[in-house]
């Protein structure tokens, strides 16, 4: 095989690699063969020194893979096509109110959820207030009226309210934490999906 044949086969066998890699490899072997021939070798002798084409191709492919390792390039931002812009403008009276309504509904749902919690906490606070008032005022009532029944009613009522207020407080707390973490998970999952 002479120089021209060798280089033409090499070029063909390297096809599929990036053009820069092909040019570089072919340039290198062209220079090498030329230098060998300048030293007095024949074209065939020079080609024989280069080794087998199979070997060169394997090496070139291995090296090309390194330089062509996929880089994390963000996808280019797509420019909006004309028909998309037109559609967006024409459809404005339709999509804008719908989007607004959806946003308002979502906001209402959030407010309702929080309202439920506020109600729970308000109930708990009133129970606690009744408990404190009942227990503290029961001796005053007992001394003022001298009535044991009223004392027991106030004191017992206070205890009952205290008994309800304490577990309700913990239940409200647990429920709030659970809902908050649920909302957090939903938001994080959505962000991950967007990425």
């Amino acid at each position: 095989m002479n120089k021209i044949e060798f280089l033409s086969v090499l070029k063909k066998r390297l096809s599929g690699l990036p053009q820069a890699d092909i040019d570089r490899t072919v340039d290198y072997y062209t220079e090498m063969i030329d230098d060998c021939m300048e030293e007095g070798m024949t074209s065939a002798q020079a080609v024989a020194r280069m080794g087998t084409i199979d070997e060169i191709v394997v090496q070139a492919r291995a090296n090309a893979r390194y330089s062509d390792a996929p880089k994390t390039v963000p996808p280019p931002r797509r420019r909006m096509r004309t028909w998309e812009t037109v559609l967006l403008c024409v459809g404005f009276p339709l999509w804008f109110p719908l989007t607004l309504a959806a946003a308002i509904i979502a906001l209402a749902v959030v407010i309702v959820i929080f309202a439920v919690y506020i109600v729970f906490y308000a109930v708990d606070l009133s129970l606690a207030a009744v408990a404190v008032t009942g227990i503290l005022t029961s001796p005053i009532v007992a001394f003022g009226n001298g009535s044991l029944t009223q004392f027991l009613l106030f004191f017992g009522g206070g205890l009952v309210c205290a008994g309800l207020a304490v577990p309700l407080f913990f239940a409200c707390n647990a429920l709030t934490v659970k809902t908050a973490s649920m909302i957090k998970h939903i938001i994080i999952r959505k962000r991950k999906e967007q990425r």
Partner: peptide, 26 residues
């Protein structure tokens, strides 16, 4: 130096061929 000369200089010490030098240079 250039490829062919590098091979000539190294060969007395360690065996190297034209196809071996190329990936090394790269």
């Amino acid at each position: 130096s250039y490829g062919y000369q590098i091979i000539k200089d190294i060969k007395p010490y360690i065996n190297i061929s034209e196809s071996t030098l190329y990936p090394i240079l790269r």
